[in-house]
Amino acid sequence: MSRRRNPAHREALLSAAVEMIAVQGLTVSTATIAKQAGVSAGTLFNTFESKSLLVNQLYVSLKAEMGRATSGGLPAEAGPRDQLRHVWDRWVGWATGTPEKRRVLAQLDVAEDITAESRDAAHQALSGMGELLERCRAGGPMQNVPLRFVLRILSSIADATIDDLIDRPGPGSATDDPRSSAAFDAIWRALAR
């Protein structure tokens, strides 16, 4: 008979995994994560069964959080440019406001342990972003290139912008920073006519 899993343990372990992976990388031990969460190693394995399952659920959880953060309050009546700007501002805000989660997500994006099922679940969490990008690039210079390639270009611009905003913060919010606006303008020109 399996034990009931405590949702508070799950959240504590996911939070501890973010903290410890941000500092030690993906080689961090499960014992270290459990200790940081204030639970036993047995509780970790009762909750996740394996480190691989923990990192896969962390990956999906972070992607879903990022998706909620970027699409929350999306103005349905606005045009594609304004909607994309809304998503951009929320993405920059989330990434600069939670740099450790962004750093961990970057590691998980390239981790071999992340399963195809987890990548599919993450893709579903961000499906609204893909639909918006399709509307934005319709008729533009990138209309006929694979969406995956477009996403890589946009992610590269976003990463460079967010890295600079974190490394050299300005006096105001990251979304009001001229570097953020310049990066968004470059993205828009790359996507639309």
Rank of each mutant, 00 (worst) to 15 (best):
L154N: 05
M142F: 10
A78Q: 03
G172M: 10
L126N: 05
T96Q: 07
V150R: 01
A192C: 14
P75D: 01
A111M: 02
Q124T: 15
K35R: 05
L53K: 14
S29D: 05
T175S: 12
E77R: 12
F184P: 07
E131Q: 13
S155E: 08
A158V: 11
R85S: 02
P7W: 00
L126G: 11
R103S: 14
A192M: 11
A121V: 00
D185T: 08
V104S: 06
W188F: 10
C136R: 00
A69C: 10
Q36A: 15
G140N: 07
E65M: 03
E77Q: 09
R90M: 07
I187C: 10
W94E: 08
A158F: 11
A160F: 03
I162H: 04
R168M: 07
Q124N: 15
L105Q: 05
R90N: 03
A22L: 00
Q107M: 07
P99R: 06
T70G: 14
M20F: 05
L74K: 09
M66V: 13
V92L: 08
S181C: 14
G172H: 13
P178E: 04
S50R: 10
T32V: 09
A192Y: 08
R119S: 05
G172V: 10
R148A: 12
R135K: 12
R135T: 13
D167G: 15
V145S: 04
A8I: 05
D164N: 15
R10A: 01
R193K: 12
E77A: 10
D167S: 15
A125N: 01
L126W: 09
Q107C: 06
L58D: 02
D109G: 06
R152H: 05
L54A: 03
A138T: 01
S180E: 04
V60Q: 08
I21C: 02
V110D: 11
L13E: 04
D109A: 09
I21Q: 01
Q36L: 15
D164C: 14
S61A: 09
T43K: 02
I21L: 00
R119H: 07
A8K: 00
R68F: 06
R81F: 12
R4N: 11
R90T: 03
R148L: 14
I166M: 08
E100V: 08
L54C: 09
Q143L: 10
V23W: 05
G139I: 07
L147M: 06
E100L: 08
S2R: 15
P169H: 06
A116V: 15
T27I: 13
G97K: 00
I21Y: 02
A116H: 15
T27M: 10
A76L: 11
W188G: 09
R135Q: 12
L26A: 04
E11L: 01
V23R: 14
R5N: 04
M1S: 13
A16L: 00
A160T: 10
S71K: 14
L133A: 09
I187D: 00
W94Q: 02
A17I: 00
S52D: 12
F45T: 01
A190E: 03
G130E: 07
D109V: 01
A22E: 13
E11Q: 09
F45C: 00
V55N: 08
Q124P: 12
